[in-house]
Design a protein around this nucleic acid. Structure first.
Lengths: 250, 250
DNA sequence: CTTAGGGACTGAACAGTGTTCATAGTAAAG
DNA sequence: CTTTACTATGAACACTGTTCAGTCCCTAAG
């Protein structure tokens, strides 16, 4: 509303504080700081005190805006999804669309430190995240697979991607702590498997060269293709839901 | 060596202490106590102090036998595998054998509290656990699938089982904290999905009745079958390893 | 039997954690 | 200006994993 280049008339009191001495604390700023701490310190050292220190604020101030550490982690989890791109469903290309989604998810999980640990144990069923689930189900549904297969396909895919990325980041963490390069660690594991007594471990010895030695990208793609083939095998079949429908109590 | 029913001759000194005042602490006893605490308190409250208290011993005494809390968790993880039964490989019935293994694993993970959290982030590559991996690879290898598919099939299966069981136990935990029965919570989630605006969430609304409402057993079996179909689809195909073999640096 | 050694165990301490609460400060509303 | 509402503070509580100077006790040697 104010013309930026015009000088303020002397009779008009300037706003009490153009740059308030204390920028007000918000959930957004807290999550920002939490991510800064996560990048620098890692998930295990991400504490309320570190986040407060990052903001130059007392610990208890955080609890005005956030109920729990759990709620803060939930907010961080939610932010992980921002800007996710899931395309319009296209029945002709659902397989590539699903693969692109999975690749995007893996890339994101590995793009910052310890995001896999953050993602684990959370479920994208909050109101803010349901749109993403809806989009994925739309893409998967375009394939024409039966209802009951469709209902668990999303879960299977995200479990696979999360589990794969978690394992990747665990190895990364381990080599950062003990080895100079991923190559070195990989070769050592390789040698370890190859040096096992072949009479007791014939299969592991025979597979030693590709158990870990294979490119992670390639392994990821192959696993993805395996799941997609399994899903696709149900297209055209009747819904596999009529037998075995006993309910359980857990 | 001593005849149990014979009275001890008076000239033969009895062993210094038949029931020593302090039963010696061993790794085994520590792991026992840790499992007792895990059952009673849950993973998040499993602490060195609780374990020590369970044994009636000072905390620092534990560190004589165990380097870390991490090492204790590793020992607990190892014990999870004791008594696992993986059959002799039989090329005719590999699918049922693999399914039995997966069912057994899921059952075990859910048989005690928070075992899924304990299993997560650990890899069964220690010397004590390699025999189990070897057996599983033998069963899978009997199917005749290509080398590179075989190499990741074990990982995929355990990722699936762990992820599935983890999600199950998360729901169980959540309903224990807030709801009277799993049925109640399930119905609420069900209603929630069904009550979403159908224009924005057509797929989720359409699947509301089977997204969560389905029996967990049935969902588990279906996911297993999907993976097995994907794996089986490679039998008879050449090893899918010649294209896309670029290595990465991570 | 006495002595010395060594391992198992203790208690206290350190540096950190999540969370709460009475209090002080600040900004807007009456 | 005063009141009200609310944010932020600092101290405290009850925990956590881990370390370390000692103590105890059992065994082996003299």
């Amino acid at each position: 509303m104010t013309q930026p280049d015009m000088p303020t008339p002397p009779w008009e009191r300037p706003p009490k504080r153009r740059t308030p001495a204390r920028v007000p604390l918000t959930r957004e700023r807290i999550v920002d700081a939490a991510y800064t701490v996560l990048d620098r310190e890692g998930y295990d050292r991400l504490s309320m005190r570190q986040v407060a220190a990052e903001l130059g604020v007392a610990v208890s101030a955080l609890y005005v805006h956030v109920r729990d550490k759990d709620e803060l982690l939930q907010l961080m989890y939610t932010r992980m999804f921002e800007g996710y791109e899931i395309p319009e469903p296209d029945p002709e290309h659902w397989r590539e669309q699903v693969k692109d989604f999975a690749r995007q998810a893996r890339e994101r999980l590995l793009s910052r430190r310890d995001l896999t640990k953050l993602a684990m144990g959370h479920v994208p069923f909050t109101p803010e995240l349901l749109p993403y689930v809806e989009r994925l189900m739309a893409v998967l549904g375009a394939s024409g697979m039966p209802r009951r297969v469709l209902a668990i396909s999303g879960d299977m895919l995200s479990t696979y991607v999360n589990g794969f990325a978690l394992e990747e980041s665990l190895w990364q963490q381990r080599y950062r702590e003990t080895h100079s390069s991923w190559h070195k660690l990989r070769d050592e594991i390789n040698d370890y498997f190859a040096s096992l007594p072949p009479d007791r471990f014939p299969n592991l010895v025979a597979l030693a060269d590709i158990m870990i030695d294979e490119s992670n990208d390639y392994r990821f793609e192959l696993g993805l293709e395996i799941i997609l083939r399994g899903l696709a095998s149900y297209i055209g079949e009747p819904d596999p839901g009529e037998e075995g429908k006993e309910s359980e109590e857990a």
